[in-house]
Every structure is written in C-alpha cells, then in structure tokens.
Simulated assay, not measured.
Amino acid sequence: MTSKGRITLPKKLRDQLGLVPGARLAFSLLGDGSVVMRVKHRRLSSLAGILTRPDQPTISIDNMKR
C-alpha cells in the first residue's frame, strides 16, 4: 500500500475481473476481519425491468400513479 492508501491489483487479477481504468470497486469489512472487494459493473438504471416475468401484464406509469 502506498503512503496515500492506494493499492495495486496484479494485472492477471484485473484482467480476470474485467477491470479497466476508471472501474468502480466496493470494499466491505466482514465481522471476522476479512475484506471483500466487489466490482461495480452496473449502474442502477441498468437493473430496470429485471423483475418482470414473460406472463406478467405491463402497467403504465399513469396507472401506477393512480
């Protein structure tokens, strides 16, 4: 770790995770002291519609507001 708190991930790991410059990462500290790093590939807007089912009827925004 550098004096500024920066870390370097090995190239092989960056390639396996599909990391590119500017990639967003999230770090979580677990109760046992372990750290989990997650790559944040998606924006919240990319999740729109993931809970729909093929047989589910669609509802317009206007009907939702009512």
Rank of each mutant, 00 (worst) to 15 (best):
M1V: 04
S3L: 03
K4L: 06
K4A: 04
K4C: 01
G5W: 11
G5L: 06
R6M: 12
R6S: 09
I7V: 11
L9E: 05
P10I: 09
P10V: 03
K11Y: 11
K12M: 01
L13S: 04
L13R: 04
R14F: 02
R14D: 04
R14E: 03
R14W: 02
R14P: 00
R14G: 04
D15F: 02
D15P: 00
G18K: 07
G18D: 03
V20M: 13
V20P: 01
P21W: 07
P21E: 15
P21L: 11
P21C: 00
A23N: 14
A23Q: 09
A23E: 12
A23G: 12
R24H: 05
L25R: 08
L25H: 11
A26R: 12
F27K: 09
F27E: 12
F27I: 10
F27Y: 13
S28F: 11
S28A: 11
S28H: 13
S28I: 05
L29I: 11
L30D: 14
L30K: 13
L30P: 00
G31I: 02
G31F: 02
D32H: 01
D32S: 02
G33C: 05
S34E: 14
V35S: 14
V35R: 14
V35T: 15
V36A: 15
V36L: 15
V36M: 13
V36P: 00
R38S: 09
R38Q: 12
V39P: 03
K40C: 00
R42S: 01
R42H: 07
R42V: 07
R43T: 06
R43F: 07
L44T: 05
S45H: 00
S45R: 00
S45Y: 01
S46T: 07
S46G: 05
L47I: 07
L47S: 05
L47M: 00
L47P: 02
L47Q: 07
G49P: 03
I50L: 04
I50N: 02
L51P: 01
L51N: 02
T52I: 10
T52S: 10
T52M: 07
T52R: 07
R53C: 03
P54S: 15
P54C: 07
P54F: 00
D55A: 13
Q56H: 05
P57W: 03
P57Q: 04
T58M: 02
I59D: 06
I59E: 06
I59K: 11
S60N: 09
S60R: 14
S60C: 11
I61N: 09
I61S: 10
I61K: 13
D62H: 04
D62T: 14
D62R: 13
N63F: 02
N63A: 15
M64D: 08
K65T: 06
K65M: 11
R66K: 14
R66G: 08
